[in-house]
Design a binder for these strands. Structure first.
Lengths: 199, 199
DNA sequence: GTCTATAAAGCGATAGAC
DNA sequence: GTCTATCGCTTTATAGAC
């Protein structure tokens, strides 16, 4: 629809990933998007409004590429194989050193951290979280169809929270990407084994 | 040693927990600590230097109260019981709605998030992380003495990363404290069961 | 070591033309 | 819708007295 608006949101994700929410300057954002500062205030109420929209944008983009890889085979990737492999792929998707993934993960982490002090961001965040947990729970259900719903949800909450913890460590340089990915894969194995015992 | 210095660091943790790293204003910090702005610049090089010292301070304080509860029985708390209970207590310690715990967790989360964009904070952060993982791994070793060292470390990394993820969700209002604590306890159970299978 | 006062710069936000 | 120009407050940081 509105090209400029989208360009600003894309640029906002880029700048947030580069400088953090704390470091986001409307002037730098304007330069990145190739527009004037005033236009940003025209399209978005104020700085916080901009952040809220950016969070929604980042969420959508993440959902979009998760859906893509779930549906059709990625170009250059193998066939999806079984439900366990699809689950692993979905969870490991955020732990990749590709520019747009890193950008999305960084921006997401930043906006989540900001929500601790900015209640306006919480609605968006909670919504995304619920959707994401539900998705993972569904995929776990395909791996372990006999497991009770509540156990699937609990496992999904643990796995997604772990993913966020590992991602934060990776992005802050405390944990290597390789280790983060290994811990994530192990956790999936451990949770799936746990669900098997409940059958 | 230096009373004023410590007072400033304590106040910094308080203000960061209240406003975030981004919201930390030297003026507000000065008021909170009951000193002048200039004194803060006298004791700490600049804003970033202050943050680095505050991160170290928050780490020490967390270690201190973890050690306390591990060593002697908490006032008003039951006897420590077995190694599994001690492990649970240690990991659940950060998921409590007590003012000083919430303050420490919030400040820690903020500083960790800031480290993504501020390499000066990373050293301190990595150090604290290693110590924390080691501690949890040791406690896991007491619960499962037959488990190999590498498996203990991997489990400890997962549990501590999960704790950070759950803590972030709790503090940003996405997850209730009760749910966060439940997920943490379940995860400990799942990991301990996993380690038992490796014996 | 600690304070008051002030410089210097940064930055969000708006007015007004096109 | 979009830009240029600018206002005005906020905030970091320092100078200099005690």
């Amino acid at each position: 629809m509105n090209d400029r608006r989208t360009a600003i949101l894309e640029a906002a994700a880029t700048v947030i990933a580069r400088r953090g929410v704390r470091g986001l300057r409307v002037e730098e954002l304007a330069a990145e998007a190739g527009v004037s500062k005033a236009l940003i205030y025209y399209h978005f109420e104020d700085r916080t409004g901009l952040l809220r929209r950016t969070l929604a944008f980042v969420n959508n983009r993440a959902e979009r590429y998760t859906a893509e890889q779930a549906a059709t085979g990625q170009p250059g990737a193998e066939a999806p194989a079984g439900p366990l492999r699809r689950l692993e792929q979905a969870l490991l998707l955020e732990l990749q050193d590709l520019p747009h993934v890193r950008e999305n993960s960084t921006a997401w982490g930043e906006l989540r951290a900001s929500a601790v002090f900015d209640p306006e961001l919480r609605g968006e965040l909670a919504l995304a979280s619920v959707i994401w947990v539900r998705e993972v729970a569904d995929q776990l259900g395909e791996v372990r169809p006999a497991a009770p719903e509540s156990a699937l949800t609990a496992s999904a909450e643990r796995l997604t929270a772990l993913l966020e913890g590992l991602s934060a460590r990776w992005l802050s340089g405390v944990l290597s990407l390789t280790d983060a990915r290994t811990r994530m894969r192990e956790a999936i194995g451990v949770e799936v084994a746990h669900l098997a015992q409940l059958d």
